[in-house]
Simulated scan of single mutants.
Amino acid sequence: MPFAPFVGVNHHGQSILLGAGLISSEDTSTFVWLFRAWLECMDGRAPKAIITDQDRAMKSAIAVVFPHTRHRYCLWHIMRKLPEKLGSHSTFNAGLKIAIQNALYDSQTCGEFEEKWGQFIKKYDLGENAWLQGLYNERSFWVPVYLKGVFWASMSTTQRSESMNAFFDGFVHSGTMLKEFVDQFDNALRKKVELETTADFNSSNQTIPCSSAFRIEKQFQSVYTNAKFKEVQREVWGMILCNCILISKEGCISTYDVLDEITTDDDHVKSIKYIVYFNNEEVDVKCTCALFEMRGIVCRHALNVCQMNKIHALPEKYVLDRWRKDLKRRYTMVKSSYDDL
């Protein structure tokens, strides 16, 4: 009987279980029932975004039950299929694979992606490839540049869901009876709560030192959980690799080109240009990398521009309650069967 978990992310970046179901099949009607049952448990509050694999039945059910939810496919699953689908091509390891990756990861706009996609399709004579054509037709579901305006809480794959399944493997197995499953399910949830409670305690009682004299880093140190402050620090460290150039200024709006050195998985270093728009009057900063919009962490490119403009503190809108360590989460107040254990 398939186990279907709903997995989210807490303020420490840890995977948390938002619900789960045992389903008898994996067709559209079953997923519609599952999603509606979960939605009822959530008081009718649908998720703003959801990540799945390319399951057609699930896609149809999401369109029915969550019509306003932004749905994306797991990018990792798609990229994992590249060797299987295109590995036999004579130039797969001699340019084709890199061309696909460049189109996906380096495109700053949808138009740029479509141009790069068209170029490698033509160059490598892949116009008749049905798999690539299908992916292109559904590009808004998986290509990063089409998903930039949505908050994903650092998630781009279903691996959190798969890791949650692996987590439960320590408590249940294929021979577990239903009654025992319910008991073990509670034990697993209690373990997750313990991990979050420990992280809460550490964030409240252990302070990670700032790595620089940059006052904006200090601003986040005082309010973010340790895990999220470390993400901020990675962006602060990354500022040293950025070269910021003022391109134009119209009134209070300045436009900057920021060249960033990116290290790929094979240790190749390449320069990527991002555009940052800065409003000096409102201290409003926006980067084409869209890290803040997607992950809620101000990017190194925006921080670089703020430093150039001698900004010592960001407006509150850039300090997300989502990552704060001083707020009590409502779900921790929900009574559970293990509360008295």
Rank of each mutant, 00 (worst) to 15 (best):
E138Y: 09
E138G: 06
E138I: 06
F141E: 08
F141C: 12
W142P: 06
V143P: 09
V143Y: 03
V145F: 03
V145P: 08
L147V: 06
L147D: 08
K148L: 05
V150D: 07
S156C: 13
T157I: 09
T157M: 08
Q159L: 07
S161I: 06
E162V: 02
E162W: 03
S163Q: 07
S163R: 11
A166G: 06
F167L: 03
F168C: 01
D169Q: 02
G170L: 03
F171E: 02
F171A: 04
H173P: 01
S174C: 05
G175I: 04
K179W: 04
F181E: 04
V182C: 04
V182I: 14
D183A: 05
F185I: 04
F185R: 04
F185H: 03
A188E: 06
R190K: 01
R190E: 13
K191M: 07
K191D: 14
K192Q: 15
T197E: 15
A199L: 13
A199H: 05
D200G: 05
F201M: 10
F201Y: 14
F201Q: 11
N202R: 10
T207V: 15
T207F: 07
C210Q: 10
S212A: 09
S212E: 10
R215Q: 15
K218H: 15
Q221N: 15
Q221S: 15
Y224P: 15
T225N: 12
T225H: 11
A227Q: 15
E231V: 09
R234F: 10
R234K: 15
V236H: 10
W237C: 05
W237S: 13
G238D: 13
G238S: 09
G238I: 06
M239G: 06
M239E: 06
I240W: 00
C244N: 03
C244D: 00
I247W: 00
I247G: 00
I247C: 00
E250C: 04
E250W: 00
E250V: 12
E250D: 12
G251K: 03
G251I: 05
I253C: 10
S254E: 03
T255Y: 02
Y256W: 10
V258I: 08
D260G: 00
D260A: 02
E261S: 03
I262L: 03
